[in-house]
Design a binder for these strands. Sequence first.
RNA 1: GGAGAAAUACCCAAGUGGUGAAGGGGCUCCCCUGCUAAGGGAGUAGGGCGCGAAAGUGUCGCGAGGGUUCAAAUCCCUCUUUCUCCGCCA
Length: 425
Amino acid sequence: MLDIRFIRENTEKVKQRLSMRGTNYDAAIDEVISLDDKRKAIIGQVEGLKAQQNKVSKQIPQMKKAGEDTTAIMAEMKEIAAKVKELDAQQSEVEAQLKDALLGIPNVPADKVPEGTDDSANPEIRRWGTPKEFDFEPKAHWDIGAEKGILLPDVAGKVTGSRFHFYRGMGARLERAVINYFLNTHTDEKGGYTEILPPFIANGASMTGTGQLPKFSEQMYQLGREDNDLYLIPTAEVPVTNMFRDDIIPAEQLPVRYAAYSACFRREAGAAGRDARGLIRQHQFNKVELVNFTAPEDSWTQLENLTREAERVLEGLGLPHRVVMLCTGDVGFSSACTYDIEVWMPSYGRYVEISSCSNFLDYQARRANIRCRNAEGKPVFAHTLNGSGVAVGRTVAAILENYQNADGSVTIPEALRPYMGCDKI
RNA sequence: GGAGAAAUACCCAAGUGGUGAAGGGGCUCCCCUGCUAAGGGAGUAGGGCGCGAAAGUGUCGCGAGGGUUCAAAUCCCUCUUUCUCCGCCA
């Protein structure tokens, strides 16, 4: 969430940049400021009364010792106690309203993020590789998967439902190989990441910390009955970022760089009909996520490193891709700046998102209370970043399509052969 | 899932309703002692929030949240986590 003091000091600028997301937040900003005014007024009153309570509470035992009558003063304090209780309740109420309002306001797009209303305004930053020219009609990965019997969406439809897959035989092995290749690469000497295997279930406080709750609950699978507070994670970003919730990260540990494999679960509400076939949009998919915690002054450098690290595994696989920066209308709720990496997908005839690398600045850190220390040793909110490093199912789809041969076989990229034990499927 | 115990600062730990949350270890500084060891003294509760230009000052912090009371680390309720034992289990 945004810093209320920052909002107060930069009201017009905040309103202006937020409106470029395509929704007007002026009323929400005004509400937040008026709630904060209310809060300060109540605190001024209640703390004065509490100071009086504390003072008198120290006098009462002395008076009793001296044999003085305390009946009158205790009656008076009783009234003050009642007033304090009432004001405390008001304060809690206003603070809850203020927090709710702040949680509903997205991050301010960074100055470098270009204005635009949708993905057509996303500037391309760079390209790597050249899409292969096929001398035959290339097939979509779902057709390749069906022909080879390695992807079984219909079986998953029966057993679970739509937008799930069984992988079979070399298909299952390929998915597993990609996961291992990603993790081994990110944790090698050049990558420098530490591997994490997180729980795939997280509680409501964690979901609020990274920004999924309260606004996006319809995108998540909640577990059990109404009375519990557990959700299937939509990305490893949630458990891994929340590892440091309510903590101060020691300076010598920064930057913290974690690479985490997890299954991800998304309801994809509102995506009916989109990417209906294949591995592109699933309710459950595998992903290796990169999460960084940095000192505030270091996050922009780390965003570049993080994005390069995600690109590195695609380059290792020889998959053509490009990097775009998301414009103000396309950048995610919690993010100040996001690079999307898009891989070339022959069946789509275009580049398709395979990774998203974001700098949240202190937006998540303030929600989750993740801090580090500045040069003076004072606690300040850390900066958090994350990026898919990268989506595994989409990578498998891209390999099947980009490496297919005229005879129906698929060549295994060199980097995966040690994991696959073969050079072709 | 059942029964019991516990949670106080960097660590250990005292504290069953009342004026500043003991004490010890460690750490920092000082003194003494030609070195070392030992000894003596002082300091050491973080963080949030309010007011203030600042110096300051107020308030809340004893696992979390409520309650009782003029007053709660202390009494009551709910929850979390850890430990021991039992049950179940990959």
